[in-house]
Amino acid sequence: MSDFDTGPGGTDEKIPFMQQLLDSPLLLLVIGIVSPMVLYIVWGVMETIAIPLAQ
């Protein structure tokens, strides 16, 4: 693809951080697993365990 636009700085232009993040499938995979694991599953299981016994 010769029409590929490399941008004003050619191939030297720095790729912004967010674009680098979005271009990293494995990093996104890790985030996409860890975040709900902690916020949803671990938190939920901890609350379940913490339910007190009836007197």
Binding site: L28, S35, P36, E47, I51
Partner: peptide
């Protein structure tokens, strides 16, 4: 990306009238 970060949390939709949470 918002999906990757947050969509799965909505699993809690199913637990809104469950005891103890």
């Amino acid at each position: 990306l918002l999906y990757i970060l947050f969509l799965q949390l909505a699993s809690a939709h199913h637990l809104l009238v469950d005891p103890g949470l």
